[in-house]
Amino acid sequence: MGKDVSLDFEFKSAIEQVWVALTDSNTLAKWMLFQENDFKPIVGHNFQFRTEPNQWWDGIVHCEVLEVDEPHRLSYTWVSGGENTTVTWILKQVDDGTTHVHLDQTGFKEEQAFSGALYGWQSMANHLEKVLTD
């Protein structure tokens, strides 16, 4: 059975600000490890995250938006390198103005892809925190 990435983050930002960071194409490009994307928060929209290719990977993640429940839930497919997974973001506003963010990426078959995703999301969350505080 495959492994799933499951991570929790706390950001000292309003839920609406975090939602924009997850759904605005220009803001996504500031914190994700991908320089380009054509994301739109519309169910059924096909999009790509793109970065420089290397000898092991073409640098493209193919995606489709599955669910948009602004500002609480966002889900999309993530197809890359032979892996077909689903990314789901769940946001909850905490009383002190902090936003709790839960991330799941499910459906990994390969340990290397799982490990890379786990590392990548943790790294990108640090960049997201910086974008939210700028």
Rank of each mutant, 00 (worst) to 15 (best):
S123Q: 13
K40S: 14
E129N: 15
M32P: 10
F39K: 07
G107S: 02
G97R: 07
K12T: 11
G97Q: 05
H62K: 13
E70Q: 14
S123L: 09
N26L: 09
I60N: 01
F114L: 04
G2P: 14
K3A: 12
H72S: 13
W31H: 08
F39Q: 08
G116R: 06
Q17F: 11
V101E: 02
L103K: 01
G107Q: 07
V68T: 02
Q48L: 00
T133G: 05
Q122K: 12
E64A: 12
R50D: 01
N54Y: 14
S80V: 02
D134M: 09
T99D: 04
L128T: 09
T133L: 08
D69F: 15
N46R: 15
F11Y: 15
G82K: 07
H62C: 09
N54V: 06
V94R: 15
A113W: 07
D4N: 15
V94E: 15
H127K: 09
Y76T: 11
L66D: 02
M32E: 11
D38I: 06
H100K: 15
L132M: 05
Q122V: 02
A29K: 14
F114K: 03
L128Y: 01
K3N: 13
L91A: 03
E67Q: 15
V43N: 10
G116E: 03
E129F: 03
I60Q: 00
V61H: 01
S80A: 09
A21N: 11
H45K: 09
V20G: 04
S75P: 06
E52L: 13
R73V: 03
T77F: 04
A125Y: 06
E67S: 12
G81F: 00
K3S: 14
A117P: 02
N37A: 00
T98H: 10
L7W: 05
V68E: 11
W56Q: 10
V101R: 04
K30V: 00
H127D: 12
D4L: 04
D4V: 10
Y119S: 08
N37F: 02
L118H: 09
T98W: 00
G81T: 06
Q122R: 12
W19P: 12
H127T: 04
D38C: 04
S6G: 10
K12G: 03
E16I: 08
G116S: 00
S25Y: 09
L66A: 03
D4G: 01
